[in-house]
Measured scan of single mutants.
Amino acid sequence: HNLTITQGKLFFHYNPKLCLSEIHKMEEVSGTKGRQERNDIALKTNGDQASCENELLKFSYIRTSFDKILLRWEPYWPPDFRDLLGFMLFYKEAPYQNVTEFDGQDACGSNSWTVVDIDPPLRSNDPKSQNHPGWLMRGLKPWTQYAIFVKTLVTFSDERRTYGAKSDIIYVQTDATNPSVPLDPISVSNSSSQIILKWKPPSDPNGNITHYLVFWERQAEDSELFELDYCLKGLKLPSRTWSPPFESEDSQKHNQSEYEDSAGECCSCPKTDSQILKELEESSFRKTFEDYLHNVVFVPRKTSSGTGAEDPRPSRKRRSLGDVGNVTVAVPTVAAFPNTSSTSVPTSPEEHRPFEKVVNKESLVISGLRHFTGYRIELQACNQDTPEERCSVAAYVSARTMPEAKADDIVGPVTHEIFENNVVHLMWQEPKEPNGLIVLYEVSYRRYGDEELHLCVSRKHFALERGCRLRGLSPGNYSVRIRATSLAGNGSWTEPTYFYVTDYLDVPSNIA
């Protein structure tokens, strides 16, 4: 807008934040220059609390790290170098490059900038070799853009010569660093050979998330399962459950009422301010606690030095998902009996873990797994792929695949051998790939016309006998059925096997 004052003059007093240069501009645009008398524009009460600059400061050096910015700028000295009290560095987070010096300023003089007072450097006698002032900004957020400017702080001049310097606002972004852990990993099994893994992005990506790394490792069953005799009275049979499938998407929606109208769909109840505040506090606490764990609990591995020492970490090797089922080394339970199943799973520490690289999504279907087997899954978020990966501390989750139908069934015939004193040795093959492992066998036998009897055969007993022995049988026709019990439950009964026990007292003698 054009402003013209045809008559009258300007009068400025007691404006401590208004620089004289701005008042002189007002004289020019209003056409009143030359009308004012000496005392109409006070030299001592206008701009006496402001830094009124008329020179431009330029930054000469900028260096960044993930949490620091090192700045240096060209030296500046007023005509009387004693008038320079120091520099004021202003900075704040700036997602967009549209910041002005006066953003967030209120009537009390406060604003949204963080201000650092910096002492002037030592003055050199040689004007050509003056030290460049600077400042190291610490405690910054990774991968965050900051708006920065600097200006001088000078003393009051009796001659009211307006001098000083100020830089333009520059924008500097800190470097990326390792992201925080992925949030809320959930693993479920939808079949006997697959596990579905879902997660949420890290709360602090500290860069642009480029991919996720998912490692999985087959877990050995508890050692007590191999040692305890679950045929003993009072000892509860062990059981394991597989990871249940995901709930429906509708039930997972946030901010939804727990109660549904019987007449149909209901609208979600909005969260109160107290609920939102509580969630923010919980989120802040979780982030602080995660940072504490990362800094205190997890110790970084030592990389190899120039002395030739090897990095103890196993090298990563990509495998196809079809090879995942046989990740671990199978060892027989008892070496003397080769027909026992290889369900003991000690994992070799030198073995390469299978892994998958996930790009542009937060889910993965891990296939080719062994049925009813526990897996430990390790999830890392990465925001750099080359020249070397920059990934987060791992988040861990466990899951067990679903049982395989008929995996616990005894394959092959049940054979028998009759000894003296009416002892019958029953023999059968253990299931080759049971659900988890076989903890015991149930032997059901009966003599024709009598009630059915049951015998429990422990895992250890089966390994020693290759089956079991029935003792003290009365003469007669017998039928026997056997079924295995694994961590997933009972298998199917075998087809009945028949044998006849004679009275050993009636056996004919070869003595003449």
Rank of each mutant, 00 (worst) to 15 (best):
P205R: 12
N206A: 14
G207H: 03
G207W: 03
N208Y: 12
H211P: 01
Y212I: 11
V214E: 00
W216C: 10
E217Q: 15
E217N: 15
R218V: 03
Q219L: 13
Q219D: 10
A220M: 08
A220Q: 13
E221F: 12
E221S: 14
L225N: 03
D229S: 09
D229N: 13
Y230H: 02
K233I: 11
K233E: 14
K233P: 09
L235H: 11
L237M: 09
P238Q: 12
P238L: 08
S239R: 09
T241P: 06
T241S: 07
P244L: 10
P244I: 12
P245F: 15
D250H: 08
S251E: 10
H254T: 09
Q256T: 09
Q256G: 00
Y259Q: 11
D261F: 08
S262L: 11
A263Y: 15
G264W: 14
E265V: 06
C266I: 14
P270M: 12
P270Y: 09
P270R: 12
K271L: 11
I276H: 11
L277V: 15
L277Y: 03
K278E: 04
E279K: 02
L280I: 13
E281I: 15
E282I: 14
S283V: 05
S284A: 14
R286T: 13
R286V: 11
K287G: 08
F289C: 04
E290C: 03
L293G: 01
L293C: 04
V296Y: 07
T307W: 11
G308E: 07
E310I: 06
D311R: 05
P314S: 11
S315R: 08
K317C: 07
K317R: 09
R319K: 12
R319Y: 04
D323M: 15
G325N: 08
G325T: 13
N326S: 13
V327E: 11
V327H: 06
V327Q: 14
V327Y: 12
P332I: 07
V334T: 09
A335V: 12
A336S: 12
F337W: 08
P338C: 09
N339I: 13
T343S: 08
V345P: 15
E350Q: 12
H352Q: 13
R353A: 05
V359C: 13
S363G: 14
G368F: 06
L369E: 01
L369P: 00
L369Q: 03
R370L: 15
H371E: 04
H371P: 11
H371V: 05
F372Q: 03
F372A: 10
Y375D: 00
L379K: 00
A381D: 01
Q384E: 06
D385M: 07
E389Y: 13
E389W: 15
E389F: 13
C391F: 01
C391P: 03
S392M: 03
S392T: 03
A394C: 10
Y396P: 10
V397W: 05
S398P: 15
A399I: 10
A399G: 11
K406W: 11
K406Y: 04
D408T: 01
D408N: 13
G412V: 07
H416N: 06
I418Q: 07
E420L: 04
E420K: 10
N422P: 01
V423P: 02
V424E: 02
L426M: 13
M427H: 06
W428Y: 02
Q429C: 14
N435E: 01
L437C: 06
V439E: 07
E442K: 10
E442C: 11
V443S: 00
V443D: 02
V443K: 00
Y448W: 15
Y448L: 06
G449Q: 11
H454E: 07
L455H: 11
C456P: 03
V457Y: 04
V457G: 00
S458M: 08
R459C: 12
R459F: 07
H461P: 03
H461E: 06
F462A: 05
A463C: 11
A463V: 10
L464R: 09
L470I: 12
S474G: 06
P475K: 09
P475S: 08
P475C: 06
G476S: 01
G476F: 00
N477W: 04
Y478I: 01
V480Q: 03
I482S: 00
R483E: 01
A484P: 11
A484N: 00
A484R: 00
T485S: 10
N490R: 15
S492P: 06
S492F: 10
E495R: 11
P496K: 06
F499C: 03
V501Q: 03
V501I: 08
V501L: 07
V501M: 06
T502Y: 10
D503F: 03
P508I: 03
N510W: 08
